[in-house]
Amino acid sequence: MTAQIIYAFITVVLGVGGCFGYFYGSNWLLDRIFPANASNDASAVRNLRIQANTRPWLFLGPALILLSLYLIFPVIQTFWLSFHDRAGNKFVGFANYAWAFSDDEFRLSIFNNILWLAVVPALCTLMGLVIAVLTDRLWWGNLAKSLIFMPLAISFVGASVIWKFVYDYRGEGQEQIGILNAVVGYFGLSPQVWIALPFWNNFFLMAILVWIQTGFATVILAAALRGIPEDTLEAATIDGAGPFKIFYRIMVPQIYGTILVVWTTITVLVLKIFDIVLTMTNSQWDTTVLANLMFDWMFRGGGDFGRGAAIAIVIMVAVLPIMIWNIRQANKEQGGH
């Protein structure tokens, strides 16, 4: 264990040091080879110009290389793979896509993804809005928001353990240690294996994501609420509007843009949802979604890169328009760049 810690420490220092070393070293070299305090003014001016033309690329270089390698290259490669057979050797045209849309499991994934899309963003945004409005009027509102927000810091795997414990099932007659079955038992109903109930189990998985993401919606929407000019609320009160009318006629329209950004951000997240399904059910009991299906085709049972890649492209095509819209909307909200 001690050896492990020392090894880890050295590795960390080397990795981070290497990165610092690159930036310091390359800039030092540039200043050294083309010194700004050269003997005569003319060459100093020339050197400064060379520095000015070179330095941006020293700054930008690592980022461009990494982006090309880790994102641009894979996008192109995946696209290419999606038109090839399982090992990536033979061109098969649209066969992988044709397979996908006739495959029952793929259809189930699409169905489940749509189910998630219909429920999670709406529920998170709604809950977030309600909590933001409620806590805004409390002196301990910030503490309350922190607690709602906290699950966002927890990993999907950690969340899965937490929720597996909530959904835990013991045979009928035994003492239930999962709180959900205990509550159900309290009302005299029989305990259920929640995550194995076909169709309904989807909702028990969604609850986890709602639990995690509502805090995000709350915080963003609370900030937007605070940005509403108080005059408009006061004016509405003077105009005789009640609290509910003020809420949906004055407040909601003014933060409408933010609501949409929250909604779409969670939508994109849901389209890519993977970890919860992997750790809770591992796609069993008809809970598979697109990302998990893709993962299974890529890494399980020998793998079929062509089919996996085709599913990846489907995900990206679904995400792309929402994301573009989202970025534009967010920029509009910030009035920014």
Partner: peptide, 11 residues
């Protein structure tokens, strides 16, 4: 009396 069109600000 020196042309400074190309000289950077600091110089």
């Amino acid at each position: 009396h020196a042309v400074v069109n190309e000289v950077p600000p600091s110089k």
